[in-house]
């Protein structure tokens, strides 16, 4: 694994031109057979973004992005600061509704249903699509109550402690906290807090988990644990992870999307985040189709 990711960071000179930004089933299947034959199930989109544009007032944060998120795969969004990765992520579970002035256009379909459509309740969307944030944000409550928070909201109160234990086990935290469930969550270490937040999100059984740079505030050892956890969770949930860290994307992601800040529209000064390239992680790192991707993954990008 380690070797693969290290070599994958050396771009091949003879990069084959990409055929498109969306899914390329044939190429992907080959990759997955190489990585892990057992996982070579066919790609099935959980979420489809089409021509998504997000504006904050006059500023364009995300411009005309189309991509699919596939079931039981880890998809990484990489790119420089301000390229709209996080903003795009927050359109998937309608967290941008909470940002004053944010206007989303285009279509985000979750299992074929437009999440911005009439009759769709953002609360139901957020329940199905979990989110983990950049900095661990456990509530100032006990470990147990943190995990139970979402369960109680949604009325999943039968076998509450069983569900809490299950979520903590899935987040690989149970053994560390089983004797201190009643203690305040703020007493946990940063890495434990972040895994608690993952458990909190998993408890309400989302089938899609959005992670916004979940390890950027953590030390290397905690980061490794989170990455291991992501690989384990892949078989249970679909994961989209925003990361600044290319090595991290190479280590955990099946698919990677590279975003950049580019001029949008006619005006020279109007710049926003655009999707440059999307494909199997290994291909993106070893044979990028776009020169901008290559510059970024080789570190030539400022």
């Amino acid at each position: 694994m380690k070797t693969r990711s290290e070599t994958s960071l050396t771009p091949a000179r003879d990069a084959a031109p990409s055929e498109g930004l969306l899914s390329q089933p044939a190429a992907l299947d080959v990759l997955f057979e190489q990585r892990s034959p057992a996982e070579a199930e066919p790609l099935e989109p959980v979420l489809e973004a089409r021509a998504v544009t997000v504006r904050y007032g006059a500023a364009v944060a995300v411009s005309d992005v189309s991509l699919d998120v596939h079931r039981n795969r880890v998809t990484a969004f990489i790119g420089p600061s301000g390229c709209g990765k996080t903003t795009l992520l927050r359109t998937f579970n309608r967290m941008n509704d909470l940002v004053p002035g944010a206007v989303v256009s285009g279509r985000v379909a979750y299992h074929g249903v437009d999440v911005n459509g009439a009759g769709v309740d953002p609360i139901e969307v957020r329940r199905r699509i979990g989110m983990v944030f950049q900095r661990p944000n456990p509530f100032p409550k006990s470990v147990f109550d943190n995990v139970a928070f979402g369960l109680r909201l949604h009325g999943l109160k039968d076998d509450l402690s069983g569900r809490v234990e299950e979520a903590l086990r899935r987040a690989a935290l149970w053994d560390e906290v089983k004797d201190r469930l009643g203690k305040n969550a703020l007493g946990l270490s940063g890495g434990q807090q972040q895994r608690l937040c993952i458990a909190r999100a998993l408890a309400v059984e989302p089938d899609l988990l959005l992670m916004d740079e979940p390890a950027s505030a953590l030390d290397p050892i905690s980061t490794t644990r989170i990455e291991d956890l992501l690989r384990e969770l892949r078989s249970q949930v679909t994961i989209v992870i925003v990361t600044h860290n290319m090595q991290q994307a190479a280590r955990v992601a099946d698919l990677t999307a590279f975003f950049s800040v580019e001029p949008t529209g006619g005006d020279e000064h109007e710049r926003g985040g655009v999707l440059i390239e999307y494909g199997p992680t290994e291909q993106l790192f070893t044979r990028p189709a776009d020169r901008r991707t290559e510059d970024y993954v080789t570190g030539r990008f400022g």
Partner: peptide, 15 residues
């Protein structure tokens, strides 16, 4: 684990 089938996102009586 199989994913949840696409069901209405409008929420139920509890919501």
């Amino acid at each position: 684990m199989t994913g949840r089938e696409a069901s209405p996102l409008s929420g139920g009586a509890r919501l």
